[in-house]
Simulated assay, not measured.
Amino acid sequence: MRLTVLGGCGAWPTAEQACSGYLVEYAGFRLLVDPGYATLPRLLDQVTVDAVDAVLISHGHPDHCADLNPLLRARGLSDEPPPPLPVHAPRGAVDAVLALDKPSMLADAYRLHEFVPGDRFAIGPFGVDTWLLPHFVPNAGIRLTTAESVLAYTGDTGPSPDIPRLAQGADLFLSEATYTHRVPAADAPYLLTARLAGQYAHQAGAARLLLTHLWPGTDPVVAREAAAEAFAHPIGVATPGLVAHLG
């Protein structure tokens, strides 16, 4: 399995960094996970739009799904449109994005497969297990499994005993880490710190930790140091173009 980071900035994109977006490849299948703000240009650095085989979205915040719209436009309005793109998302999560255009305009560009966090299903060669994790809107923690490797991804989440289960023994644990050491009180049930991400990676026995969704302007060195207080294995920060090989 190969993970390419398209972006990892929380809330809004910056001049240097798109929001959450990850291209996961295995056995010739390309799965786009969380096409957030400004990820489509970064995707086009890697592949053409018709090379994406499916999309998987953790939740309905636009920093995780807004660029589904230009992706569908680029496919559906091309001179030779590719087959409809399977889009997997929690129930209702992409309604607002799909409503940006009149229904008939992109109707043939995608096929929507809605799920309830907690469901288990397959996308191409990937086994997909999901967990309902606490956030401001329903969010699916995602575990992608192949014969050789496991990638665990939190989406956006607050503290939960399910996170170590999601990441148990994962080759790579991709964890939101909006803050470094402390989340403001009002948001504490719904977001993580880098330090807590490190604690969960340690509890899960993950091989590697990749921090993502850092608040814009956060020093990645400080985030890594915070995670390293609890996790002794390799730690990275999601930046555009970063590639991780699993298995």
Rank of each mutant, 00 (worst) to 15 (best):
R2S: 14
L3H: 06
L3S: 03
L6W: 01
G10P: 02
G10M: 00
A11M: 14
W12D: 02
T14H: 02
A15P: 03
A15Q: 11
E16H: 12
E25W: 04
E25S: 13
Y26V: 10
A27P: 11
G28H: 05
F29H: 12
L31K: 01
L32V: 01
V33S: 03
Y37A: 00
T39I: 00
T39N: 00
L40I: 07
P41Y: 01
P41C: 10
L44Y: 07
L44C: 14
D45H: 14
D45M: 13
Q46D: 05
D50F: 07
V52H: 02
V55S: 05
L56F: 01
L56Y: 04
S58L: 10
H59V: 10
H61V: 12
H64N: 00
H64R: 01
C65T: 10
L68D: 01
P70H: 08
R73P: 11
R75Y: 08
R75V: 07
G76Y: 03
G76M: 03
S78K: 02
E80M: 14
P83R: 13
P84I: 10
G92A: 05
G92V: 03
G92S: 09
G92I: 01
A96L: 13
A96Y: 11
L98N: 06
A99H: 08
L100Q: 15
D101N: 12
P103E: 09
S104G: 15
Y110F: 15
L112V: 03
H113Q: 12
V116I: 12
D119H: 07
D119R: 08
R120V: 14
F121H: 02
D129G: 10
D129W: 12
H135I: 08
F136S: 15
V137R: 06
P138E: 08
P138Y: 03
P138D: 06
P138M: 07
P138T: 09
A140E: 00
G141V: 00
G141W: 00
I142V: 15
R143T: 06
R143P: 01
T146I: 05
A147Q: 13
A152R: 05
T154Y: 00
T154A: 00
D156K: 11
D156Q: 14
P159V: 05
S160A: 03
S160G: 01
I163M: 05
I163L: 12
L166A: 04
D171H: 15
F173D: 06
F173I: 05
S175E: 09
S175H: 04
T178L: 13
Y179F: 12
Y179W: 14
Y179C: 10
H181Y: 15
H181F: 15
R182N: 14
P184H: 11
P184A: 06
A185F: 13
L191T: 10
L192T: 11
A197K: 04
Y200L: 10
G205Y: 02
A206W: 09
A207F: 12
L211P: 09
H213C: 11
L214S: 02
P216M: 08
P216N: 09
P220T: 03
P220N: 09
R224F: 02
A227L: 00
A228K: 12
E229N: 11
E229Q: 14
E229V: 09
A230V: 11
F231S: 09
A232P: 11
P234S: 04
P234L: 04
V237M: 05
A238M: 04
T239L: 14
G241M: 04
L242E: 13
V243Q: 12
A244R: 14
H245L: 15
L246P: 03
G247C: 04
G247T: 10
